[in-house]
Design a protein around this nucleic acid. Sequence first.
DNA 1: CTTTCTTGGCTAACGCTGTTAGCCTAGGCG
DNA 2: CGCCTAGGCTAACAGCGTTAGCCAAGAAAG
Lengths: 177, 177
Amino acid sequence: MSRRDQILDVALELLERDGVESLTMRSIAEAVGMRAPSLYKHVPDKRSLEAGLIARGLAAQAGVFERAARKRSPLAALAQAYRGWAREHPHLYRLMTDGPLPRDLLPPGVEAAAAAPLLAVTGNVGRARALWGLAHGLVSLELAGRFPPGADVDAAWRVGIAAFAATTTGSRSRSTS
Amino acid sequence: MSRRDQILDVALELLERDGVESLTMRSIAEAVGMRAPSLYKHVPDKRSLEAGLIARGLAAQAGVFERAARKRSPLAALAQAYRGWAREHPHLYRLMTDGPLPRDLLPPGVEAAAAAPLLAVTGNVGRARALWGLAHGLVSLELAGRFPPGADVDAAWRVGIAAFAATTTGSRSRSTS
DNA sequence: CTTTCTTGGCTAACGCTGTTAGCCTAGGCG
DNA sequence: CGCCTAGGCTAACAGCGTTAGCCAAGAAAG
């Protein structure tokens, strides 16, 4: 295992435990057992380090989503998988979704791999993006604590996926854009 | 106009022009015509200053959304108003939605005022939150540049609101939670 | 009218951030 | 054996939010 991967391991652990604003070059370095400037012998800058974490997150999502898409009611399973993964990795999820994707630093294909199951289940791009919007929006609002405490978030999800499920049967493959 | 309001004016202008990472205490102070530490004679800290901007954003949204909710097809109009406002004030929108709302620093009622039209149009809380999730998710993905360049975001919105419109008539007032 | 006190500016500085420059040492290799 | 590179180090810089402490102008009180 390369030193870079070891740094990413430590950084990921730190991120998931303490959140994104505790992920500093100095804290990572200390956890690895070196001083901050030495990190730059293995990683060009912090943005690239974060991109490494994002790539891992996308790869993990891809695996989870693929499995969900093979279940009996794939749309609901996918939605549940999306929300579940986000709640298990809230800090990583926020790192992945706050701010634009560092596409220039990502291994090619990893973004598409995470999106593929969603596209497969929904059938067309418009529906995929709408469903993605719904899922990301609900997750994002939930993680940010925007819903009042005690709000029935499950109910909102049920309403949302019901709406999409209805149009699945109601107007399947109407537009193929 | 109090000095605090004048500072908020300048900060808002700065935010909307240059984005959230250019909104520093020193840049605000310079634009106002003073040094950074002097800002603390009028504002307790940066978080409270940002809360002031968020409050203005919520108030502005409330006005826009109320007008949209009175149109002929309120759901579509509301969705369009939501997206339109976010695109007109992308930096403020991100400031408002990245991270949890500073509810302790917000004038009471302003959050509810912005949410009220959505609740009125959808009828019940579950639907309101699902639609909010959809709108926020699509806006957030669009502003973060998550969709590939040239993606038909309009189509995704059409699909999304169509799904909700369908369940409006199909199962109106089924759950009243 | 004078004295006192509050308001609102200032500079200097602290601890934090990411990052760079430059040094040094251990180990592989011709 | 000598050299060169890989990978550590310290010192430092600029910029961040923020605090301490100083000082002048003007209001307020006797």
